[in-house]
Write a protein that binds this DNA or RNA. Structure first.
Length: 415
RNA sequence: CGGGCCGUGGUAUAGUGGUAUUACGUACGCUUCGGGUGCGUAUAACCCGAGUUCGAUUCUCGGCGGCCCGACCA
């Protein structure tokens, strides 16, 4: 993409009403637009990042048998009344509205009820199980207090997967495969070494749920990390009994603030019984389906990546989710340099390289500052020196290290 | 929901009971061209309502909006 065609612009200053680093940088760089507190639009660059993250998650969910679909944002009041979760006393984040034709609807803050209800149409026999469904959905939650930029909004994108299995044993198998899939996701986006499988409160259905917590000072959670086991325990469940159960000594733990980027848990058969999701086993006996729920905040993960990797110059994207692989920058406006940069751009595009080409009529200083802010992994600089030597300077955004790549090898270096 | 702070051009800011400063941006001209070049000109603002007052952007009250701390966060 030619940067001169990009309608967004960078800003020198962050809006005064944003304190969170993720929002400041994403707005300054033109990735997102704030519509109101806790509600952000995703602009062309931001959308690219969202889609890259989604694609990684998609691949990992597909790999464990997930089937992508998409449910509706409008939800039936009657359905949620069955499980007692329509009542504002039980769920305090509902956005609700009325139908012109009469009746009430809610805006989906979660989809366990609708998906489970829908699955009644497709699950009747043990032969129909297991089933794993997932979606990327915009969740709407009427948070009392939105905060921290895109980390905790009233509208956000989440991947939610639901597992339907015939018994606890089958559930367990899938649950563990989901844990491994989540680990691969965080590994692929570069957060593997600071994201911990965390034991958290299990609620009414199981002893524990599991969270995926990324260590960061801007996090809202406090976890206790057991480095050698590679797991953590959420502060809210840290008791002597839990430590004993996990075979952990308290003095082996390190406290850290963290961001909850994923949460998986077992609903057991409770919701299936409530909603009537039953199946016949091979003895003709009617049984409730076991339900598991697996959330992963896509936009929160995007914010986490900004928080964790940004430096004093701006955003630093991991290659896997960067909006573009390379940022080609024509440093001087003379015809020879521009023509040279144009040809490099065309070669890269032809080779299928994701490239953002700064072809704007702007000064080198501004282009370089903007490039730092945008955070694209590799910057290719085309200047007078390039013309003279026939070598293109490639600078790594994260380390700042540069190397000269001969013009003839430039496509091969990134294709 | 409890507590606190705050709403001034597109953005960031200064300031005042008598209509408003500066920078960035934007437009035009010249200049410059490997880390936001320099100069000039132009452009554009006091959240809404009520009250006090001769006069309110400024003070008071209310509303709306924003941020922070806490609570909440299957």
């Amino acid at each position: 993409m030619r940067q001169s065609h990009l309608f967004t612009k960078t800003r020198r200053e962050a809006p005064s009403d944003e304190v969170a680093k993720n929002a400041q940088l994403l707005i300054r760089a033109g990735y997102i637009h704030k519509e109101m507190a806790g509600v952000y639009g995703y602009l062309p660059l931001g959308l690219r990042v969202v889609e890259k993250i989604k694609q990684i998650v998609r691949e990992e969910m597909d790999a464990i048998g997930g089937q992508e679909m998409i449910m509706t944002s409008l939800q039936r009041k009657e359905l949620w009344e069955v499980t007692g979760r329509w009542d504002d006393k039980n769920v305090d984040v509902w956005f609700k509205s009325k139908l012109a034709s009469g009746g009430e609807v809610g805006f989906g803050w979660s989809h366990e009820e609708p998906i489970t209800d829908m699955m009644k149409h497709f699950i009747g026999s043990y032969r129909d199980l297991p089933a794993y469904t997932y979606q990327f959905q915009t969740k709407l939650r009427n948070e009392l207090r939105a905060k921290s930029g895109i980390m905790r909004g009233r509208e956000f994108v989440m991947k939610d997967l639901y597992s339907y299995t015939k018994d606890e044993a089958a559930h367990e198998v899938f649950y563990n495969s989901a844990i491994e899939a989540y680990k691969r996701v965080f590994e692929r986006v570069g957060l593997g070494d600071r994201t911990y499988l965390t034991y958290a409160s299990g609620g009414a259905f199981t002893e524990f749920s599991h969270e995926f917590q990324t260590v960061s000072d801007v996090g809202e959670d406090v976890i206790y990390i057991h480095k050698s086991k590679g797991i953590a325990v959420n502060k809210e469940v840290l008791t002597p009994e839990v430590l004993e159960k996990l075979d952990i000594e308290e003095n082996e733990l390190e406290e850290a603030k963290s961001i909850e980027v994923g949460n998986i848990f077992n609903f057991g058969d409770t919701k299936s019984k409530q909603l009537g999701l039953l199946y016949r086993d091979d003895n003709g006996e009617e049984k409730p389906v076991i339900l598991g729920s697996y959330g992963l905040g896509i936009t929160r993960l995007m914010g986490t990546l900004v928080e964790v990797f940004a430096d004093d110059k701006g955003i630093v994207w991991p290659e896997a989710v960067a909006p573009f692989r390379v940022h080609l920058v024509a440093l001087v406006p003379d015809g020879v340099t521009v023509a040279y940069a144009d040809s490099v751009y065309e070669d890269l595009v032809r080779a299928g390289v994701d490239v953002l080409y700064d072809d704007r009529d702007a000064r080198a200083g501004q282009k370089l500052t903007d490039s730092d802010l945008l955070g694209i992994p590799t910057r290719l600089l085309i200047g007078k020196e390039t013309i003279e030597t026939g070598k293109i300077e490639a600078v790594d955004r994260r380390s700042g290290e540069g190397k000269r790549i001969p013009r003839g090898e430039i496509v091969g270096a990134f294709a």
